[in-house]
Design a protein around this nucleic acid. Structure first.
Lengths: 251, 251
DNA sequence: CCATCTTTGTGCACGCGTTCACAAAGACAT
DNA sequence: ATGTCTTTGTGAACGCGTGCACAAAGATGG
């Protein structure tokens, strides 16, 4: 799962729980697939299986949105697609800028999952003058100098940062200064933003490290019979997959 | 057969909370930066600020690892780097394969954050015969036919899936069949894996949708109730969640 | 050696999220 | 209409994570 932070303090009034919001896109994807197969209705059990969650959780999630189901039948697929889309704000157009058109930025620009959800890549921005004008995913890259103007001209409120770590905070400050209030950060840095600005971060390295932790524990479990806790220097030598280290081939 | 989440129910022995594990890489990154600046010790307050978390939370996190701090002084940076690295299993070499060398796969192959954390890209695999042999990030792409052999020859236990959604489950099955027990999934699909296999997913589109939800709510807040005149500064949030802005630019 | 000061480590309370289990609601057949 | 059957919506219990607040531990200075 992606490591997002900056959760809000439980929106007071008509608050949909943050955990529920995070699952709505999951339901929406499953529902869209059903819709394309012209399935008219779906039960909480079926939909939950398709989305990979518990059915009770799914029903509770939907209960925050309203009573959109029919007892004894299930949920109307089309209607639910619409309701969730509306709740997530996907019925409107969201212009997005991507800053930092390296490998990752280019991959993001080419990513098809954006356009299909109401997100439109309004501009690509990079600090390298050599990139300026060069088309990526059919969109010409523009220079960082024009960042503020681009944001304002396009009414952009969501920015994606795919720059190196060193440039991220500076880019972030300029985005916020120009009016961006939501940021998706791919740079491995903690961003400081004023109140009212949302930041979600995706860190590939962190995800791998979490996997490594579990992987190590799995490997240790096999060899661990009974262990006295000595609390300091466990000579844990998991005879894991690195028994034979072939050749380290630097990139 | 489990679907998607393979949650570990706090196994008997050394149960470090999942939430803590997810933050360890964050601390490690901050500590590494301090180490490079030859800072000998750091207090929980300083380190917490650098990692963007609450200091009490950080101390509690560390308490699960052991008592590595010195009261009145703080934590020894080098020692803590080692302890966290060991806990995360980063002191050993983790060969990783990336399947699906499109835009995203290529970006991942080029990502520098892997090698610096003990992860080694052992192989790149793609289904397109035209890609075979072509070097990406200095590593020749190999064909899917050889997937099983590559996994076994290199002792790979962590796989990264960057294929289109349609191919993801099939690739996943083959990876698991060949011995992979941890998967990082970038395809927008719910993967079914047997018990004992961990799956983490990163979905770019979902992150944007969550941002859109909050963005829409912000926009709605302004028009409801009284008008917020001065642009971007909203009403005070009762408490600072994580978004506190200490902006520590340490000397 | 004692006093004071700093910072860790943690007991405790609170709130959010998850899950169970079941009554209410509606469809459908007779 | 009435009974049966299916599935939703939710009250309630539980567990995990978070943050406060403070005592314990060690450093430091006199």
């Amino acid at each position: 799962m992606a490591t997002g932070r900056t959760h809000r303090p439980a929106t007071r009034s008509r608050g949909i729980p943050e955990a529920t919001v995070a699952r709505l896109p999951l339901y929406l994807r499953a529902l869209t697939a059903l819709s394309e197969r012209s399935v008219p209705t779906v039960s909480s059990e079926e939909l939950a299986a398709a989305a990979g969650v518990n059915s009770a959780k799914l029903r509770k999630d939907f209960s925050y949105l309203g009573s959109y189901g029919t007892r004894g039948v299930g949920y109307d697929v089309e209607y639910l697609v619409y309701q969730i889309s509306r709740e997530l704000g996907l019925t409107q157009d969201w212009p997005v800028v991507i800053v930092g058109i390296g490998n990752l930025g280019a991959a993001l620009a080419n990513y098809g999952g954006f356009a299909s959800r109401g997100f439109r890549v309004a501009a690509l921005i990079d600090a390298d003058p050599a990139m300026a004008g060069k088309p990526v995913a059919g969109i010409p890259v523009q220079h960082t100098d024009d960042l503020e103007k681009i944001i304002k001209d396009n009414g952009v409120s969501i920015g994606v940062i795919a720059t190196p770590a060193g440039a991220a905070q500076q880019v972030c400050d300029r985005l916020v200064g120009a009016g961006v209030t939501s940021i998706l950060n791919f740079a491995p840095t903690v961003l400081s933003v004023p109140d009212g600005v949302d930041v979600r971060k995706v860190d590939l390295s962190i995800e791998l490290q979490i996997l490594a932790f579990h992987e190590q524990r799995k490997a240790g479990e096999e060899t661990a019979g009974e262990e006295a806790v000595t609390a300091s220097v466990p000579k844990n030598t998991p005879k894991g997959p690195d028994g034979d280290v072939p050749v380290v081939m630097p990139a």
